[in-house]
Design a protein around this nucleic acid. Structure first.
Lengths: 341, 341
DNA sequence: CGGATCTCGGCAACCGATTGCCAATCTATC
DNA sequence: GATAGATTGGCAATCGGTTGCCGAGATCCG
């Protein structure tokens, strides 16, 4: 029978520093220092305390520590859609770095809703040391507001006064456009993602500007939801646009367009060249495999975690290199067709 | 300038119930009760307190509450590999349910290592109310041990005395084997996943038993790592086995086998019928799309979270239906070829 | 040898809630 | 009008650590 009513009857209460202190014949504060202020305590005492702690299976209670120190050793990462394959490597990168530095990573999903994102972030904020906002749908002012409460960092979005990790989209876009130009394409369509997406606007602008430099025309179609279904929905508009090549906001949409096109008998790349974005899992085993502009997501996740943790510990900011996108030629692009299809 | 040295100089200390109490002219305990024991306090007092709390932006500090109550409103979910697409829907299902019931979900990855999994689980255990182990690689005894500290639940694994949510693999396997039998297949290969995987053993056994009932032969190949690369590695063994149809432990491996086969000119399904497992994202846009045995992962995640939360709150166990697998015929299966390839 | 400095460990306050217990007041009942 | 009972709110302990401050004893140094 548990002595403490709030515990489940059959679960043993974990050992505390008070238990260790009693067994070692010292005060709890001595145990605390022995365990995490190396050198502060006589070496032999420290050793004895460590042995006893080990023997009775003492484990620090992170919550109890967090209360007075305000440090939870936890990071939160919010994103619009957990199941979007774009984020897998990013999540893993952040998780690995966090774990290696002794931090726990909490994931939260905003389901493409700014309100939900804000609410979630607010709720989590008091339980974490810092927050990574991936592809935030929030207003700038909300983000700034969050930044006043805890250190935060945005990925693939820039907000004045807030640290960010953003992939440089230009190198990949340049190479993609050079590639399309060599293939004779003159008129392109950009299939836009959500209008609330900062990254969507960046890709849109960069494509337009780079295409302009090359004397190519770009028409922006959308916005569309950034999913397979959203890409499929764009098919008709792409046909009507008269473009010979389409760049989708992301691979998910490119895949959707590819499937939808396939169903109505459109041949890709013969009738339409298609370029995706991100190089997600699966984009290489469609048929044809999708030519895409790769985003180094694992690197983004790692850098985000690394920089946030550095900030938390007041470490000197790492000299940080901007991750670059990279053009990946596969088989969904080919020479521009001549007539309409 | 902050009065409290441990806070970042430029971040305001969040409001506490003490602040609210002072402004309302009541004691902190009254504030606490006003906010979460509706009716315990005079209605007008409660109303006044709520208004003040709202006005100064008071937010409960979950850590402070967790310390005396032992309840963190947090669930942890451990899995072997975050980026395995198999888990996406499962994670989302669990996250949705958790969020809707006011729980936070923490994700932890064990990278296919039992030791790391155990360590992670141990570390997290004091910060969470309960733990969901997905495809645990741990020993039964370790799992039982964890269960003594906190409520835990396993997914796709059964351990005596521990609650579990496991998909029934038999319906899908039956339909798959019936399908293969109709196509004239008599000798099958099962491409095994990790030997430490309980689910792998279940699939292996069930396939063997059901195939036996139908007078079909099965040879088990492996174990192999449950990834695209692992599937590719199995190609040679499949050829040598003389089987006319192969069932892979999961879709990832089926995809790997498909790609590897494609590279050496093997035609699927003409020369080899291929059946995957799980219906992961992407398994329908390979060419040919992979015939697979679908596992209802979202449902598994939802049920796991639901049941664990019910246990935490001592609610009556939900009448719980076992999620069933389902055969999904696509195009990677065809009539058995006659000669060797 | 005496004073300054170091080393080591304990005391007690604190973080921000929750909650058992108690007391004061109000209400109801006979 | 007395008393039982309900209502309302406060006191103080508690959860498990951390840390500023203090003092006893050891060590150092001129």
């Amino acid at each position: 029978m548990a002595t403490n009513g709030r515990r489940q009857a059959d679960r043993a209460a974990p050992a505390t520093i008070y238990d260790v202190a009693r067994m070692a014949g010292v005060s709890p504060s001595t145990v605390s220092r022995a365990l995490n202020k190396p050198g502060r305590i006589n070496a032999s005492t420290e050793h004895r305390i460590r042995e006893i702690a080990e023997a009775i299976g003492y484990r620090l209670n992170p919550l109890a520590r967090a209360l007075p120190t305000g440090r939870t050793q936890t990071l939160a990462l919010t994103l619009s859609d957990i199941t979007n394959p774009v984020y897998f490597e990013l999540i893993r990168g952040a998780e690995r770095v966090a774990a290696s530095r002794g931090y726990i990573l909490i994931l939260a999903e905003s389901q493409e809703s700014a309100d939900l994102e804000n609410e979630t972030a607010q709720r989590l904020l008091s339980s974490v040391d810092g927050l990574i906002l991936v592809a935030a749908r929030l207003d700038n002012s909300d983000i700034v507001e969050l930044g006043k409460r805890k250190p935060i960092l945005t990925v693939n979005r820039k907000v004045r006064g807030i640290g960010s990790v953003v992939a440089d989209v230009r190198p990949g876009i340049r190479d993609a456009l050079d590639h399309l130009q060599r293939l004779g394409h003159k008129k392109l369509a950009y299939i836009a993602g959500p209008s609330s997406s900062w990254m969507n606007r960046l890709r849109d602008r960069t494509i337009s500007s780079e295409a302009g430099d090359r004397g190519m025309k770009v028409v922006t179609l959308g916005p569309h939801v950034p999913t397979v279904a959203g890409g499929a929905a764009a098919l008709e508009a792409v046909r009507e646009s008269g473009a010979t090549a389409a760049l989708a906001y992301n691979d998910l949409m490119a895949i959707g367009l590819l499937k939808a096109g396939h169903e109505v008998g459109m041949r890709i790349p013969e009738q339409l060249s298609l370029v995706g974005f991100d190089d997600i899992f699966g984009s290489d085993f469609t048929s044809p495999p999708i030519t895409t502009i790769r985003t180094p997501h694992a690197l983004l996740g790692e850098q985000a975690a690394l920089r946030l943790i550095a900030e938390l510990n007041n470490e000197a900011a790492h000299r940080h290199t901007v991750p670059r996108t990279e053009f990946l030629q596969r088989s969904s692009t080919d020479r521009a067709r001549l007539g309409r299809f």
